[in-house]
Design a protein around this nucleic acid. Structure first.
Lengths: 324, 324
DNA sequence: TTGAAAGCGCTAACAA
DNA sequence: TTGTTAGCGCTTTCAA
C-alpha cells in the first residue's frame, strides 16, 4: 500500500499539502487538488487510519464486548450498535466473551491496546478490572461500578407486567422459569415477577436454567421440565427458553394457551414463528442501541452527563400463548 | 494513556529495552525486567497496538463483512470466525453491509484504511471493487473473481439431497421456495434441486422470496403462500423461511408431515424448537469458519495455495417434518 | 496557498 | 545486555 510521501512526490507537492487535501483542513488550490486526486486514484491510495490515530489519539473505533454474537438477543443489539456507531463515523471491534471472565479480561487488554475511543460491554463479568481504565465505557444490562453508566431495559417492570398479565388471564398456579443467577437482567425480571405476585398474595414456583441460550437447551433441562404440567401459567426469562418450554409441552400434547399460558421476554423474531405466536415482553432494542451509542459518544467528547442508570421502557406484546 | 518513553524513564532504562521486554525479542536482565514490570503495572500501561501496526505493517486485525450480524446464519458463522481468528491472535473489525452495495464499498475503504491483515466478505455484492486491493481476501458463499478464493457449503449437492429425500419419502407434487435471485448460495440449492428432479422426470413448481431473513417474512409472502396446500412436499431455501412456511401451514391446520413434508436448509438452532422438528440440510458451520480463517491466514503469511473453490460437505439431518 | 520540520508511539538496525 | 537513532505514515505548527 502506498503512503503519503509517495503521493506527494508523484503529485509534485509536499506531504503537508497532501495531508491538507485529505483532511480538508485548509485551502488547497484547485490545480494542486486535481493533481493529488489523480495520483490517489491511480494508485488506489487509502490514508493509513492507524498512523492517523497514533497522532490524533482518536481511533474512531468502538470496542463491543458481548457474550456471543450468535446469541439472538445480543446479535440484534450488536446490529443496532453497529448501525448507530457507523452513522457517527465509528467502527466496531468485535469481542465475544462467551460469558468467560478470562476472555473478557483478555479482550479488555486488547481494546486498551487498540486505543478504542469507547467500549460497550454487555453483561460484563468483571468489576475491579474496569477501575483503572481511562476509556469511556457503557455497561449494557448490568452494573460494574458507580462510575460506569449502565444502559438496560426496565427488566424489573417487565417481570411485573408479565405477572399481571398472567394473573389477569386467570392463571393461579404459576411457575417462573428463571435465568442463571449471575445474570442481572434475568434476576431483575425474577424480582419484578415475585414482587407483583406478592401483591396478590400468590405463591410462585421456580425452575432455573443454567444458560440463556444454547442449541441443546431442551435436552439440558428436560428433567426440570417434567412436572410443569401442573401449572396453568408460566413466565419464562427469555423467548428462546420459552420456545423450548413450548416445544416440551407440545411433545406432551399440552394445549397452549388452553391448558398452560406462556409469556416470554425480549420479543425476538422467533415469537411470530412459533405456533401459537408467543406473548412476550418487548425490549426496545432500537432505543437501547441508540441510547448506548449516543451516551458513549458524549462521554468520548467529554460532555458531562449524569452517571446513572438509563432504563428503557418495556411493554407487553400480547399474542397467542395467553388467553386475554 | 502512558507511552513507552514514560515507562522507560520511570524504570530508568532506554525505550529500546522496554520494547524488547514487551516483545520478548531479546534478552533483558531479570533486574531490569522487574523494574519495567513494576512501572507498567503501576500506570496500567498497554502498548499502543496502532503505533506498533504502523511500523510492523501488521495490524493483526481481520475485517469481517456480513450482510447483517442479526441474520441467524451469518451470526453463527461470525461467531466461529471470531473464535478461530482470536485463536490465531487476530481481532475482528465488524462490518454489516445490509446487502447494500454502497455500504460494502464504503466499508471496503474503511478496511483498507485500517490496514487490516485480511478480509472475509460474506455474500459480496461488488466485483471490480475487489480488483485492485492488495489485502488477502476470502469470499464466503459466492464468487467475486478468478483471483479470489471462495469458501462455501456445497449448496448444489444440498439441493440434490433435499430432492432425493423428499422423493424417497413419497412426495410427487413438489414445490421449491427459493431465495432471492441475487444470492449465489440459494441459486445453487435451486439448481441442485432442479437437476435431481429432472433425473426423476418430475416437474417442480417455484415460489421466490425477496429476502432471506426479516422479521416480517410471513406477512411479506403470505399472498404467495396461498396455494401451497396442493403440494405434498416443499423444499425451502433456509430454515427461517421454512419456519415461516410451517407457521402458515399450521395456521391453516395443515398437518406436517402427514399432508405436506418440509425440508429446510442450514440446520440452525430453530430446527429443534419447531414442532415437529425441522428436517434440514446441515451446513458445517464450524468447518466453514475454520477453513475460512486457516486459508486467509495462509494468504496473509504469503503461503502459496491454490486459488479455487473450497466446498464443504453438507448432509441431511432427518427430523420430524419428513416421513422417512 | 504551500513547504520544512517536529513529533505521535512504536520497532529495529547498529554500535557499544 | 543495553542505548542511540532512524524511520513507520501521519498531522500540525511555523515560516514563507
Amino acid at each position: 500500500m502506498s503512503n503519503i510521501r509517495k503521493i506527494a512526490k508523484a503529485a509534485g507537492v509536499s506531504i503537508a499539502t497532501v495531508s491538507r487535501y485529505l483532511n480538508g483542513t485548509e485551502h488547497v488550490s484547485d490545480e494542486v487538488k486535481l493533481k493529488i486526486q489523480k495520483v490517489i486514484e491511480e494508485v488506489n491510495y487509502k490514508p493509513n487510519a492507524l498512523a492517523r490515530a497514533v497522532f490524533t489519539k482518536n481511533s474512531k473505533t468502538i470496542g463491543l464486548m458481548v457474550p456471543n454474537i450468535s446469541n439472538p438477543f445480543f446479535n440484534q443489539m450488536s446490529s443496532v450498535i453497529e448501525e448507530n456507531a457507523n452513522n457517527n463515523g465509528y467502527n466496531i471491534l468485535l469481542c465475544n466473551t462467551d460469558d468467560d471472565i478470562e476472555k473478557e479480561k483478555k479482550y479488555l487488554d486488547v481494546l486498551q491496546s487498540h486505543r478504542v475511543a469507547g467500549i460497550v460491554v454487555a453483561r460484563s463479568k468483571c468489576k475491579e478490572e474496569y477501575g483503572n481504565i481511562d476509556i469511556p465505557i457503557i455497561s449494557f444490562e448490568n452494573h460494574i461500578s458507580d462510575e460506569i453508566i449502565t444502559v438496560s431495559s426496565d427488566n424489573y417492570s417487565g417481570g411485573k407486567i408479565a405477572f399481571e398479565h398472567l394473573y389477569e388471564s386467570g392463571c393461579r398456579r404459576i411457575l417462573h422459569i428463571k435465568g442463571p443467577k449471575c445474570f442481572e437482567a434475568t434476576e431483575e425480571r425474577y424480582r419484578g415477577f415475585l414482587d407483583a405476585a406478592k401483591e396478590k398474595n400468590l405463591e410462585i414456583d421456580f425452575i432455573e436454567f443454567e444458560t440463556d441460550f444454547q442449541v441443546e437447551m431442551l435436552k439440558e433441562n428436560i428433567e426440570k421440565l417434567k412436572r410443569i404440567n401442573k401449572y396453568d401459567g408460566i413466565f419464562v426469562f427469555n423467548d428462546i427458553a420459552a420456545a423450548t418450554v413450548m416445544k416440551f409441552l407440545k411433545m406432551n400434547n399440552t394445549k397452549i394457551p388452553k391448558d398452560i399460558q406462556i409469556i416470554g421476554f425480549d420479543n425476538s423474531f422467533i415469537c411470530e414463528l412459533l405456533h401459537p405466536s408467543l406473548t412476550t415482553i418487548n425490549q426496545p432494542i432500537q432505543e437501547l442501541g441508540k441510547a448506548t451509542i449516543e451516551i458513549l459518544i458524549k462521554l468520548i467528547n467529554n460532555e458531562k452527563i449524569p452517571i446513572k442508570d438509563y432504563l428503557m421502557e418495556v411493554k407487553l406484546i400480547n399474542r397467542g400463548t395467553t388467553i386475554l
